[in-house]
Amino acid sequence: MRLRKSWTLTMKEFAVFRRKKYIIYSLVALPLVLSLMLPLSIFFSGAFSEVSDSVLGTLFKGEFTIFIILAALLPAVIGSYSIIGEKVEKSLEPLLATPSTDGELLLGKSLAAFVPSIGATYAGAGLFIAVVDGLTYSKLGYLLFPDWSSAVILLLTAPLACVFSVEFNVIVSSRVNDIRAAQQLGSLVVLPLVGIYVLGQTGTLTIDAYHLLVVSGILLAADVALSFVSRRTFQREEILTKWK
């Protein structure tokens, strides 16, 4: 496996993405809206002044799990284009003819979906943390973020969710011909993660470092399982003869 070759493919993907407005808008708009809208909605509601400090902290920490969902959602936008786009433009055959292994091509494509998605997630999370700390510091007297649970989310859960989504989208791309259909199907990957967010918001699940580590462990196992499936799916002959 030559990483340089995968990175060459990734850089080419970035050059193509720069000209796709909807990809840029998705990468900028979604994190921006979530980072501002969620903390401000609590700030401007009655809850901010009425609830105790610990409840306020729980509320904001629960909302932070949205970045796990975001990390899984963004690859559906990028990954679907990255593979289906090539399929539609019929540019896969010359790419597959190059002296590179299936693994190098898959890694290049996966990095192209992973890097901007996780980058946008981190940027959004950074903005969220800055806004929340800015809003709550005078009331709480300490910085709510970063804490252990946000660190686990950013360093473990969100990247693993992102990898899961990238792999899922590779598999979806092998069965679909239309970019929109791929995006819609690929977005289904967030459903179990939405479940975690809802459980956290309703207080059913305590969003702490321990539970997040458990979720990360499950995601890691799912990533390993899906990586076998996506590698089997992303093979030259399979792509040329069965990806219709």
């Binding site: 060459t8 493919l9 080419k12 433009e89 540019s91 055959e93 003819a97 002296p99």
Partner: peptide
């Protein structure tokens, strides 16, 4: 694959890249 150059039935170029960028990318891949 290194010894072979191929012009497929569908040209399969990247429409959002320049002619030079297309060729430079493939040069790197080869």
């Amino acid at each position: 694959r290194r010894a072979v150059g191929i012009l497929p039935e569908n040209v399969g170029l990247y429409e959002d890249l320049t002619a030079y960028a297309n060729l430079d990318f493939y040069g790197k891949m080869y």
